[in-house]
């Protein structure tokens, strides 16, 4: 039998350490992450005529709809960001990233059960690849936003491109982190109880309304219910994003710290829970 001091590459015990996150193993599978990103991107638009153009069409139409409903009909102010088009487009770009990240990662276990059931690779590879492939989509939509800003500035609107743009990657990372953290928590919960899938679709719809996408945070000043919106860790990120782009928005360092801490906590809990569930989710999924 087994002799002391023998070196084994893999040891599986029924009661393994929860804190062993196997980050180095994920690194070994980095090619797989990249191939999954490619697969998501390539496979989504196979047999479509417009192909990746769909990434641009979606935000354009949503922006126009928001412009009509919130701008023209409800007449909600836009923090003096002119033209209003840019206000809505910036919010939608960031929100789309968050919501697609969260919905896609939250179904990691259920949609990939057939692969997970047949072969082992670090399960964290899949949610990570989702976050990255959506980052590519965000990039495309951001280019659209950038093009819209250029166009507006040529047409005489005062738009300045400042060094504040350097904050944007950090804000996107915060968004990605919160999306990933919440996503893997929900995906771990759904392996056994599918109630959370239903809950999520519903929560995503409501979530957009408690995040300042269609209205600025300044609009809620002195309102008694403003705390609901401020408690949302996404609020500071969206506001800071607009501040970085247009120089207008309600931002302070404390609220950003709040979002950051929230991200760290969800990622930590998510990683631990995911790690616990991934071992035997095949039995219940």
């Amino acid at each position: 039998m087994d002799q002391a001091g023998e070196k084994w590459d893999i040891e599986i015990k029924s009661n393994a350490n929860l804190l062993d996150l196997k980050i180095s193993e994920v690194w070994n599978y980095r090619d797989l992450i990249w191939l999954f990103v490619r697969r998501d991107f390539v496979a989504q638009y196979k047999q479509t005529i417009l192909g990746p153009l769909w990434h641009i069409i979606q935000p354009i139409f949503t922006t126009l709809m928001f412009l009509l409903i919130f701008g023209k009909i409800a007449k909600i102010p836009t923090d003096n960001i002119k033209p209003e088009l840019l206000f809505y487009m910036s919010g939608i770009t960031l929100w789309t990233y968050f919501s697609t990240c969260l919905t896609a990662t939250s179904s990691t276990f259920t949609t990939n059960a057939s692969i997970f059931g047949k072969v082992y690779f670090p399960r964290l590879v899949l949610p990570l690849s989702i976050i990255i492939s959506n980052l590519v989509k965000l990039g495309i939509q951001f280019l659209l936003l950038f093009a819209a800003m250029l166009w507006c500035s040529f047409n005489g609107h005062p738009i300045s491109f400042t060094l504040n743009w350097l904050y944007i990657p950090f804000l996107v990372l915060l968004m990605a982190g919160i999306g990933l953290g919440c996503g893997i928590i929900i995906s771990s919960l759904t392996t056994k109880y599918r109630d959370f899938t239903v809950l999520l679709t519903f929560a995503m719809q409501l979530g957009m309304y408690v995040t300042p996408i269609a209205y600025p945070l300044s609009f809620l000043k002195n309102k008694s219910y403003a705390w609901v919106i401020k408690a949302n860790p996404l609020t500071p990120i969206v506001e800071a994003f607009r501040y970085a782009l247009f120089g207008k928005g309600t931002v302070d360092i404390n609220s950003i710290m709040y979002s950051f801490i929230f991200m760290i906590i969800t990622l930590f809990i998510g990683a631990l829970y995911f790690n616990k569930v991934e071992k035997s989710f095949m039995d219940t999924v």
């Binding site: 087994d2 590459d9 893999i10 040891e11 599986i12 015990k13 072969v119 082992y120």
Partner: peptide
Amino acid sequence: SRVTAPTTGSLKIKGRVASLLE
């Protein structure tokens, strides 16, 4: 092939495993 974890007991492997369950 590490698709699911054992309820009790342990398993040790040396080297890379390729499993073709499908």
